[in-house]
Protein backbone atom coordinates (compact mmCIF):
# COMPACT_ATOMS: atom_id res chain seq x y z
CA UNK A 1 0.00 0.00 0.00
CA UNK A 2 1.27 3.46 -0.86
CA UNK A 3 2.03 5.66 2.09
CA UNK A 4 -0.46 8.47 2.61
CA UNK A 5 0.43 11.75 0.95
CA UNK A 6 -0.24 15.25 2.20
CA UNK A 7 -1.31 18.28 0.20
CA UNK A 8 2.33 18.85 -0.84
CA UNK A 9 2.33 15.36 -2.32
CA UNK A 10 4.79 14.14 0.29
CA UNK A 11 4.75 11.19 2.64
CA UNK A 12 5.65 11.25 6.30
CA UNK A 13 8.98 9.81 5.34
CA UNK A 14 9.85 13.14 3.76
CA UNK A 15 9.71 14.73 7.22
CA UNK A 16 11.97 12.28 8.98
CA UNK A 17 15.45 13.01 10.26
CA UNK A 18 18.44 11.03 11.48
CA UNK A 19 17.88 8.47 14.25
CA UNK A 20 17.83 10.06 17.67
CA UNK A 21 20.88 9.65 19.88
CA UNK A 22 19.02 10.69 23.05
CA UNK A 23 18.28 8.30 25.93
CA UNK A 24 15.50 5.78 25.35
CA UNK A 25 12.21 7.22 26.56
CA UNK A 26 13.37 10.85 26.45
CA UNK A 27 10.44 13.26 26.26
CA UNK A 28 12.26 15.17 23.52
CA UNK A 29 11.81 12.23 21.14
CA UNK A 30 8.04 12.48 21.57
CA UNK A 31 8.21 16.16 20.64
CA UNK A 32 10.33 15.28 17.61
CA UNK A 33 7.66 12.78 16.56
CA UNK A 34 4.96 15.39 17.07
CA UNK A 35 6.87 17.89 14.91
CA UNK A 36 7.18 15.31 12.14
CA UNK A 37 3.49 14.47 12.37
CA UNK A 38 2.24 18.04 12.48
CA UNK A 39 4.50 19.38 9.71
CA UNK A 40 3.51 16.40 7.57
CA UNK A 41 -0.19 16.95 8.23
CA UNK A 42 0.15 20.64 7.48
CA UNK A 43 1.87 19.90 4.16
CA UNK A 44 4.80 22.17 4.98
CA UNK A 45 7.47 22.26 2.26
CA UNK A 46 10.47 20.72 3.99
CA UNK A 47 13.06 22.81 2.15
CA UNK A 48 11.43 25.96 3.53
CA UNK A 49 11.89 24.86 7.12
CA UNK A 50 14.72 26.48 9.05
CA UNK A 51 15.44 24.50 12.21
CA UNK A 52 17.54 26.55 14.57
CA UNK A 53 18.72 25.52 18.00
CA UNK A 54 21.22 26.35 20.72
CA UNK A 55 23.17 23.84 22.79
CA UNK A 56 21.96 20.97 24.96
CA UNK A 57 19.98 17.75 24.54
CA UNK A 58 16.96 19.62 23.17
CA UNK A 59 19.12 21.51 20.74
CA UNK A 60 20.37 18.26 19.26
CA UNK A 61 16.87 17.29 18.15
CA UNK A 62 16.65 19.29 14.90
CA UNK A 63 18.92 16.60 13.46
CA UNK A 64 16.20 14.05 14.18
CA UNK A 65 13.43 15.62 12.10
CA UNK A 66 12.94 17.08 8.62
CA UNK A 67 16.29 16.19 7.10
CA UNK A 68 15.24 18.07 4.00
CA UNK A 69 15.04 21.30 5.94
CA UNK A 70 17.99 23.50 6.79
CA UNK A 71 19.38 23.12 10.28
CA UNK A 72 21.52 25.42 12.37
CA UNK A 73 22.91 24.27 15.68
CA UNK A 74 24.25 27.56 17.04
CA UNK A 75 25.82 28.49 20.38
CA UNK A 76 24.42 28.09 23.88
CA UNK A 77 21.45 30.32 24.57
CA UNK A 78 21.70 32.19 21.30
CA UNK A 79 19.17 30.45 19.08
CA UNK A 80 16.87 33.52 19.15
CA UNK A 81 19.47 35.80 17.56
CA UNK A 82 20.23 33.40 14.72
CA UNK A 83 16.54 32.72 14.14
CA UNK A 84 15.75 36.44 14.14
CA UNK A 85 18.47 37.24 11.62
CA UNK A 86 17.56 34.37 9.31
CA UNK A 87 13.83 35.07 9.44
CA UNK A 88 14.30 38.76 8.62
CA UNK A 89 16.73 37.92 5.82
CA UNK A 90 14.19 35.54 4.31
CA UNK A 91 10.70 35.89 5.73
CA UNK A 92 9.46 33.08 3.49
CA UNK A 93 11.29 30.59 5.68
CA UNK A 94 9.27 28.62 8.21
CA UNK A 95 11.25 29.31 11.33
CA UNK A 96 11.31 26.66 14.02
CA UNK A 97 13.49 27.31 17.03
CA UNK A 98 14.20 24.49 19.43
CA UNK A 99 15.67 25.23 22.82
CA UNK A 100 15.80 23.76 26.28
CA UNK A 101 15.26 25.09 29.77
CA UNK A 102 18.97 25.68 30.37
CA UNK A 103 19.45 27.14 26.91
CA UNK A 104 16.49 29.48 27.36
CA UNK A 105 16.01 30.28 31.02
CA UNK A 106 19.63 30.68 32.12
CA UNK A 107 22.31 31.47 29.56
CA UNK A 108 19.74 32.54 26.99
CA UNK A 109 17.42 34.54 29.22
CA UNK A 110 18.31 37.88 27.65
CA UNK A 111 17.80 36.70 24.09
CA UNK A 112 14.60 34.92 25.09
CA UNK A 113 13.14 38.15 26.48
CA UNK A 114 14.02 40.18 23.44
CA UNK A 115 12.89 37.70 20.84
CA UNK A 116 9.51 37.61 22.64
CA UNK A 117 9.09 41.38 22.63
CA UNK A 118 10.13 41.59 18.98
CA UNK A 119 7.32 39.17 18.10
CA UNK A 120 9.45 37.35 15.52
CA UNK A 121 7.27 35.16 13.31
CA UNK A 122 8.43 31.74 14.43
CA UNK A 123 7.69 28.75 16.60
CA UNK A 124 9.89 28.67 19.68
CA UNK A 125 9.80 25.34 21.51
CA UNK A 126 11.28 24.95 24.96
CA UNK A 127 11.81 21.26 25.58
CA UNK A 128 11.62 21.72 29.31
CA UNK A 129 12.88 19.03 31.66
CA UNK A 130 14.09 21.20 34.52
CA UNK A 131 17.57 19.78 34.39
CA UNK A 132 20.88 19.99 32.57
CA UNK A 133 21.01 16.59 30.92
CA UNK A 134 24.22 16.81 28.86
CA UNK A 135 26.23 17.89 31.90
CA UNK A 136 24.57 15.23 34.05
CA UNK A 137 21.76 16.49 36.18
CA UNK A 138 22.26 20.01 37.56
CA UNK A 139 19.09 22.00 38.27
CA UNK A 140 17.95 24.40 35.61
CA UNK A 141 16.10 27.65 36.28
CA UNK A 142 12.76 26.08 35.35
CA UNK A 143 13.01 23.51 38.15
CA UNK A 144 10.32 24.17 40.74
CA UNK A 145 11.33 25.46 44.15
CA UNK A 146 11.57 22.46 46.44
CA UNK A 147 11.91 19.95 43.62
CA UNK A 148 14.38 17.19 44.38
CA UNK A 149 17.47 16.49 42.27
CA UNK A 150 18.47 12.92 41.54
CA UNK A 151 21.35 13.40 43.97
CA UNK A 152 18.77 14.23 46.63
CA UNK A 153 19.26 17.97 47.07
CA UNK A 154 16.29 20.34 47.07
CA UNK A 155 16.11 23.25 44.66
CA UNK A 156 16.18 26.38 46.87
CA UNK A 157 15.38 28.89 44.13
CA UNK A 158 12.03 30.03 42.73
CA UNK A 159 11.14 28.81 39.26
CA UNK A 160 11.37 30.98 36.17
CA UNK A 161 8.06 30.63 34.38
CA UNK A 162 8.90 31.20 30.73
CA UNK A 163 5.24 31.33 29.71
CA UNK A 164 4.39 34.06 32.22
CA UNK A 165 7.44 35.98 31.05
CA UNK A 166 6.58 35.51 27.38
CA UNK A 167 3.05 36.82 27.93
CA UNK A 168 4.38 39.79 29.87
CA UNK A 169 7.02 40.53 27.23
CA UNK A 170 4.78 40.60 24.20
CA UNK A 171 4.71 37.11 22.71
CA UNK A 172 1.43 36.75 20.85
CA UNK A 173 0.88 32.98 21.07
CA UNK A 174 1.88 31.21 24.26
CA UNK A 175 1.18 27.56 24.99
CA UNK A 176 2.23 25.02 27.55
CA UNK A 177 2.04 21.31 27.08
CA UNK A 178 3.40 17.95 28.17
CA UNK A 179 5.33 15.75 25.79
CA UNK A 180 3.15 12.85 26.89
CA UNK A 181 0.03 14.59 25.55
CA UNK A 182 0.69 13.99 21.86
CA UNK A 183 -2.67 15.28 20.66
CA UNK A 184 -2.34 18.59 22.48
CA UNK A 185 1.26 19.08 21.34
CA UNK A 186 0.29 18.47 17.72
CA UNK A 187 -2.65 20.89 17.89
CA UNK A 188 -0.42 23.59 19.36
CA UNK A 189 2.34 22.99 16.81
CA UNK A 190 -0.10 23.25 13.91
CA UNK A 191 -1.72 26.38 15.30
CA UNK A 192 1.76 27.87 15.85
CA UNK A 193 2.45 27.37 12.14
CA UNK A 194 -0.75 29.28 11.32
CA UNK A 195 0.16 32.14 13.64
CA UNK A 196 2.07 35.13 12.27
CA UNK A 197 4.19 36.19 15.20
CA UNK A 198 5.96 34.65 18.13
CA UNK A 199 4.48 31.28 19.10
CA UNK A 200 6.13 30.09 22.28
CA UNK A 201 5.50 26.51 23.34
CA UNK A 202 6.86 25.42 26.69
CA UNK A 203 6.61 21.64 26.56
CA UNK A 204 7.40 19.74 29.72
CA UNK A 205 9.53 16.89 28.50
CA UNK A 206 10.81 14.51 31.18
CA UNK A 207 14.46 13.56 31.33
CA UNK A 208 14.41 9.82 31.94
CA UNK A 209 18.02 9.72 33.08
CA UNK A 210 18.38 12.67 35.46
CA UNK A 211 14.94 13.97 36.38
CA UNK A 212 12.37 11.18 36.43
CA UNK A 213 12.55 10.22 40.10
CA UNK A 214 10.36 10.61 43.14
CA UNK A 215 10.40 14.24 44.28
CA UNK A 216 10.95 15.63 40.78
CA UNK A 217 8.19 17.89 39.46
CA UNK A 218 9.15 17.18 35.87
CA UNK A 219 8.89 13.38 35.92
CA UNK A 220 6.45 11.36 33.80
CA UNK A 221 4.48 10.34 36.85
CA UNK A 222 4.29 13.86 38.24
CA UNK A 223 3.26 15.36 34.91
CA UNK A 224 0.62 12.72 34.28
CA UNK A 225 -0.91 13.21 37.69
CA UNK A 226 -0.69 17.02 37.75
CA UNK A 227 -1.51 17.90 34.13
CA UNK A 228 -4.69 19.99 34.10
CA UNK A 229 -5.56 20.90 30.50
CA UNK A 230 -7.36 24.25 30.34
CA UNK A 231 -9.36 23.06 27.38
CA UNK A 232 -9.41 20.39 24.72
CA UNK A 233 -7.73 21.73 21.61
CA UNK A 234 -8.81 21.07 18.05
CA UNK A 235 -7.11 22.47 14.97
CA UNK A 236 -9.10 23.18 11.81
CA UNK A 237 -6.79 24.00 8.89
CA UNK A 238 -7.73 26.67 6.35
CA UNK A 239 -6.85 24.28 3.53
CA UNK A 240 -9.25 21.62 4.77
CA UNK A 241 -12.08 23.34 6.63
CA UNK A 242 -14.60 21.16 8.37
CA UNK A 243 -17.77 22.35 9.97
CA UNK A 244 -17.48 22.46 13.70
CA UNK A 245 -20.71 22.46 15.56
CA UNK A 246 -20.40 25.12 18.17
CA UNK A 247 -22.74 25.02 21.06
CA UNK A 248 -23.06 28.29 22.95
CA UNK A 249 -20.58 28.50 25.78
CA UNK A 250 -18.95 25.16 25.08
CA UNK A 251 -16.24 25.99 22.56
CA UNK A 252 -14.11 29.05 22.05
CA UNK A 253 -12.94 29.67 18.53
CA UNK A 254 -9.54 31.23 17.86
CA UNK A 255 -9.21 32.51 14.29
CA UNK A 256 -5.57 32.33 13.23
CA UNK A 257 -3.76 34.54 10.70
CA UNK A 258 -3.78 32.08 7.81
CA UNK A 259 -7.52 31.41 8.08
CA UNK A 260 -7.16 28.29 10.18
CA UNK A 261 -8.93 27.93 13.51
CA UNK A 262 -8.06 26.58 16.89
CA UNK A 263 -11.04 25.35 18.84
CA UNK A 264 -10.91 25.37 22.61
CA UNK A 265 -13.41 22.99 24.13
CA UNK A 266 -14.32 23.87 27.67
CA UNK A 267 -13.10 21.56 30.42
CA UNK A 268 -14.30 22.69 33.79
CA UNK A 269 -14.12 26.48 33.99
CA UNK A 270 -14.15 28.64 30.90
CA UNK A 271 -10.66 29.93 30.03
CA UNK A 272 -10.23 33.01 27.85
CA UNK A 273 -6.72 33.01 26.34
CA UNK A 274 -7.10 36.55 24.99
CA UNK A 275 -7.18 38.08 28.46
CA UNK A 276 -3.61 38.92 29.38
CA UNK A 277 -4.18 39.65 33.07
CA UNK A 278 -6.17 36.48 33.61
CA UNK A 279 -3.64 34.40 31.70
CA UNK A 280 -0.87 35.56 34.03
CA UNK A 281 -3.11 35.12 37.09
CA UNK A 282 -3.95 31.62 35.96
CA UNK A 283 -0.27 30.71 35.80
CA UNK A 284 0.24 31.99 39.34
CA UNK A 285 -2.72 30.02 40.56
CA UNK A 286 -1.48 26.85 38.87
CA UNK A 287 1.87 27.27 40.57
CA UNK A 288 0.21 27.73 43.96
CA UNK A 289 -1.99 24.69 43.51
CA UNK A 290 0.95 22.70 42.13
CA UNK A 291 -0.81 21.84 38.91
CA UNK A 292 0.47 21.87 35.37
CA UNK A 293 -1.91 24.12 33.44
CA UNK A 294 -1.61 23.18 29.77
CA UNK A 295 -3.15 24.38 26.54
CA UNK A 296 -3.24 27.74 24.79
CA UNK A 297 -2.42 30.14 27.59
CA UNK A 298 -2.40 33.36 25.64
CA UNK A 299 -3.28 34.61 22.18
CA UNK A 300 -3.17 38.05 20.61
CA UNK A 301 -3.87 38.59 16.94
CA UNK A 302 -3.43 42.27 16.18
CA UNK A 303 0.26 42.83 16.75
CA UNK A 304 2.69 43.29 13.89
CA UNK A 305 5.44 40.71 13.65
CA UNK A 306 9.06 41.88 13.44
CA UNK A 307 9.20 41.93 9.64
CA UNK A 308 6.11 44.13 9.74
CA UNK A 309 7.58 46.41 12.39
CA UNK A 310 10.75 46.75 10.32
CA UNK A 311 8.68 47.34 7.20
CA UNK A 312 10.69 44.80 5.21
CA UNK A 313 9.86 44.61 1.50
CA UNK A 314 7.86 41.69 0.11
CA UNK A 315 10.79 40.12 -1.72
CA UNK A 316 12.98 38.40 0.86
CA UNK A 317 16.12 40.47 1.50
CA UNK A 318 18.27 37.44 0.70
CA UNK A 319 16.85 37.33 -2.81
CA UNK A 320 17.61 40.93 -3.72
CA UNK A 321 20.29 41.23 -6.36
CA UNK A 322 22.91 43.88 -7.04
CA UNK A 323 20.58 45.73 -9.42
CA UNK A 324 17.96 45.94 -6.66
CA UNK A 325 20.43 47.07 -4.05
CA UNK A 326 22.84 49.60 -5.49
CA UNK A 327 21.38 53.09 -5.61
CA UNK A 328 22.03 54.97 -8.85
CA UNK A 329 25.10 57.00 -9.75
CA UNK A 330 22.98 60.16 -9.51
CA UNK A 331 22.02 59.44 -5.91
CA UNK A 332 25.67 59.20 -4.94
CA UNK A 333 26.45 62.51 -6.62
CA UNK A 334 23.61 64.03 -4.65
CA UNK A 335 24.84 62.57 -1.36
CA UNK A 336 28.35 63.81 -2.14
CA UNK A 337 27.05 67.33 -2.69
CA UNK A 338 25.89 67.34 0.94
CA UNK A 339 29.48 66.93 2.11
CA UNK A 340 30.88 69.96 0.28
Amino acid sequence: MDAAKNRAGLTKNDYMGKPSTLCKGCGHDSITAAIIESYFQMGVKPHMVAKVSGIGCSSKTPTYFIDKGHGFNSVHGRMPAVATGAKIANHDLIMLGVSGDGDTASIGMGQFCHVMRRNVDMTYIIENNGTYGLTKGQFSATADQGAKAKKGTDNPYPVIDTCAMAIELGATFVGRSFSGDRKQVISLLKAALSHKGMALLDIISPCVTFNNHEGSTKSYTYCKTHDMPLHELGYVPAFDPIEVEIKEGEIRDIALHDGSHLTLKKLGSDYDPTNKMKAIMNLHEARQSKTLATGLLYFEKDQKDLAGILNVCDTPLSKLQQRDLVPSRETLAKVMAGYK
Binding site: A50, V52, F72, S74, V75, R78, P80, A81, V82, A83, T84, G85, A86, K87, I88, A89, N90, L93, G110, Q111, C113, H114, L317, S318, K319
Partner: peptide, 19 residues
Protein backbone atom coordinates in the same frame (compact mmCIF):
# COMPACT_ATOMS: atom_id res chain seq x y z
CA UNK B 1 19.94 44.34 19.47
CA UNK B 2 19.94 43.75 23.23
CA UNK B 3 23.72 43.27 23.29
CA UNK B 4 26.64 42.46 21.02
CA UNK B 5 26.16 38.70 21.47
CA UNK B 6 22.80 39.09 19.89
CA UNK B 7 23.85 41.52 17.17
CA UNK B 8 26.53 39.17 15.83
CA UNK B 9 24.13 36.21 16.17
CA UNK B 10 21.55 38.01 14.06
CA UNK B 11 24.19 38.88 11.47
CA UNK B 12 25.25 35.24 11.27
CA UNK B 13 21.63 34.11 10.96
CA UNK B 14 20.94 36.65 8.23
CA UNK B 15 24.14 35.80 6.33
CA UNK B 16 23.34 32.10 6.60
CA UNK B 17 19.97 32.85 5.01
CA UNK B 18 21.74 34.71 2.20
CA UNK B 19 21.62 38.42 3.07
Amino acid sequence: AEDELSSIGMVIGASWAGA
